[in-house]
Amino acid sequence: MTFGSATSAAAPVPEPPASVELSADSAHRLARTLEPAEWSAAGIPLLRNPREVVSDLHTRHRPAPATAVVAVLDPDGRLRASASFSGRTTPTDGWVLRNALLAQLRRIIPHDLRRRTPVRTAVLLYCRAGDARWTQEDGAWMWGLRDACTLHGLRCGAYITLTRDGWHVLGEGRGGRRPNAGASPEAFAGTDPPAPRTGGAASDVLRRAAAR
């Protein structure tokens, strides 16, 4: 026995248009992003010496466009560990970027989830094309950084873009012309030899201590 009106019983059920699915997916991606005002209101700790942090990371990792550098600072603001990796995803999704950041953090430094209050801070330097103005991609990175820090027991620190115009700390209004996306580390940092692309001054020591 079939229920329904005579005009609709034999008609096939129409499938949802593809645009509806795409719109829903876009909505989810937009929910995993942070606007500049949200980032500024989140109480992100200020870098004590952003120029020093940027130049150090630039010298160590030599980031090209679409390269992300995640670093962990100790309570005194000194670099403890860092890693660089290709950061481009299509389409940009904060959830995907969060997972990539979390994987790198797990490689380079033990988590601090046993602490009641985080003492170490993770910062992110992202080298990309374009100028220093905020983009949706930046918003996805900021969402990913904040979430990865929560899952690894770290404080969420600064998000820094590196473009052809120089470096810029989003939400702080601080920046400089050097280094930039086209500058060589040697030209900016003298003759210091580049450090490995993964790790930092004490990452190996911290890993051995955590294993005991």
Rank of each mutant, 00 (worst) to 15 (best):
H152E: 10
G87H: 13
G130D: 03
G157M: 10
A132F: 12
T89F: 08
V54R: 01
V169L: 09
Y159W: 01
A6W: 01
G171W: 06
H152M: 07
S5H: 10
A42N: 05
T191Q: 10
H28I: 00
R98Q: 08
D112F: 04
I44M: 00
A100N: 12
C149F: 11
R115T: 10
V69T: 10
R98K: 12
V70I: 15
I108Q: 11
A41C: 06
A211D: 06
G171C: 01
R177T: 03
R51D: 00
A37N: 11
R98S: 02
S86V: 10
L113A: 08
H28W: 01
C156A: 14
T59N: 12
A27F: 02
P17Q: 07
R197M: 09
A11D: 07
Y159C: 04
A211I: 01
P36Y: 00
D131H: 08
V70C: 13
L97A: 04
R177G: 04
E137S: 10
G87M: 09
R177F: 03
S26I: 01
S8R: 01
A195K: 05
A195M: 05
D147H: 15
T33N: 01
F85T: 11
Q136W: 15
L22K: 09
G130C: 00
L97D: 05
A83K: 14
R116T: 10
S5R: 12
R128F: 07
S5C: 13
A209G: 08
A81Y: 13
V70T: 15
R60V: 02
A201E: 04
R174C: 11
L206Q: 13
L57C: 06
G190M: 03
A210W: 14
D165Y: 04
A71F: 13
S19V: 09
R80S: 12
A148D: 06
D147Q: 15
L97K: 03
P65G: 07
L113E: 07
L206N: 10
G190Y: 04
T117N: 09
A189G: 05
L30F: 07
G200H: 11
L170F: 06
T121K: 08
F3Y: 12
S8V: 05
M1L: 14
T198I: 14
P65F: 00
D56N: 00
F3H: 14
S84V: 04
V70Q: 14
C127G: 08
R197F: 04
S184G: 06
A27I: 05
F3I: 14
R115M: 13
L145I: 12
W167H: 04
A81I: 10
D147S: 14
D93R: 01
G190N: 02
T135Q: 03
L22P: 00
A209S: 11
L151N: 14
S26F: 05
A181D: 06
A189F: 02
S86Y: 11
G87C: 11
R88F: 13
S203T: 09
R48S: 14
M142Y: 11
S86C: 10
W95C: 03
A18F: 03
R107W: 07
W167E: 05
S26R: 02
R155Q: 15
R32M: 01
Q104D: 05
A195Y: 00
T135L: 03
F188H: 08
A148C: 05
T92L: 02
S23I: 02
G153C: 14
C127Q: 06
R114H: 00
R114M: 08
T198M: 07
W95N: 10
L73I: 09
P45R: 02
L30M: 02
A10F: 02
A100P: 04
Q104F: 01
V20L: 09
G173R: 14
D56R: 08
L46K: 12
